[in-house]
């Protein structure tokens, strides 16, 4: 150190340089990284995450919903901001779809755990961040319809991730389908054998047999939309297809967490038993149910 105070002047030179450099393009880039927020600059990057939303496939928001109300995300959510009520039809039977799916985004911390634990790729992160609302309690509590966004939107905000997820789903579906075919054949044979006499007996049937028909309802909602063709299919075909999913879905859930396994399998058992009376109702009631659900949602 030579002259007392020279250090201070050196420092002043640095600040002067920084000040001057902001008048040049290159300097501005290095030294003035400010983004003029509303006018310019897209701060959204590949993995940008803010709050989760629910994906639906196809056109129909509610029918296309991937979520099957397995409640894994609700259980795993660290700040516990998700609240799910399973949908029931008029007979008190669970439908594989949430009636209430609330996310309190003022509690949500955007940690993405729900996305990671979801076995159905039904919930993903949004990159939308402009959420200023007037009411903290009402407006920041997103309900199911507010959370539903189309798969196309997801493809727009996170194309790579969306493609990966779609591929994942397709692979799952293919695997399901292979299994389904095998079972379909079995089921067809069984169905023919069972016929009318079976109907009456079915009410008292134990769970192993009951599990087959159980499938109907849940399948119709979550699986049909993801397999876009499903709707075109006749109900007769849809029914056997449905048998597949209930078996698969709890299984998929099992992978996630062991608790989940217990609970979801427990849940599906519950459904099975509750659905027993339903069996006799047949496919005609299915339509009614759908219609009701549609109303309820809207």
């Amino acid at each position: 150190m030579d002259l007392l105070g020279s250090g201070i002047f050196k420092g002043m030179a640095v600040t002067l340089k920084n000040f001057a450099m902001t008048y040049f393009d290159r300097g501005r880039k290095e030294r003035l990284p400010t983004v003029q927020y509303p006018e310019a600059g897209d701060t959204v990057t590949l993995f940008t995450r803010n709050f989760p939303f629910l994906i639906y496939d196809g056109e129909e928001e509610v029918d296309g919903m991937r979520c099957v109300a397995c409640q894994i995300c609700e259980r795993e959510c660290p700040p516990a901001c998700i609240y799910i009520v399973k949908e029931k039809d008029e007979n008190g039977k669970f439908v594989k779809r949430p009636k209430v799916f609330d996310i309190d985004v003022s509690v949500c911390m955007g940690c993405q755990i729900c996305v990671e634990v979801c076995p159905f790729d039904a919930i993903v992160m949004d990159s939308e961040f402009e959420y200023s609302k007037e009411d903290r309690f009402g407006d920041l509590l997103f309900n199911r319809d507010e959370l539903l966004k189309s798969n196309d939107y997801y493809h727009k905000i996170h194309p790579e991730e969306a493609q990966a997820r779609d591929a994942n789903l397709a692979a799952k579906k293919a695997a399901d389908e292979a299994k389904k075919k095998a079972r379909e054949e079995k089921a067809a044979a069984a169905a023919a054998a069972k016929a009318a006499a079976e109907k009456e007996a079915s009410e008292k049937k134990d769970s192993p047999e009951a599990s087959e028909p159980v499938a109907e309802e849940p399948k119709a909602e979550p699986a049909a939309p993801s397999e876009n063709h499903a709707k075109a299919e006749s109900e007769a075909k849809e029914k056997p297809a449905a048998e597949e999913t209930p078996v698969e879905e709890p299984a998929a859930a099992t992978d996630e967490t062991e608790d989940a396994k217990e609970e979801s399998s427990g849940g599906s058992e519950g459904k099975e038993t509750s659905e027993e009376p339903e069996e006799t109702a047949g496919s005609g009631e299915d339509d009614e149910k759908k219609a009701e659900e549609g109303e309820g949602v809207s």
Binding site: A80, Y83, V107, F137
Partner: peptide, 16 residues
């Protein structure tokens, strides 16, 4: 065996 006291302000979150 700690039981949290029921003395704070609850915010109405969606949780039952």
């Amino acid at each position: 065996d700690y039981v949290e006291p029921d003395d704070y302000e609850y915010e109405p979150t969606p949780h039952g």
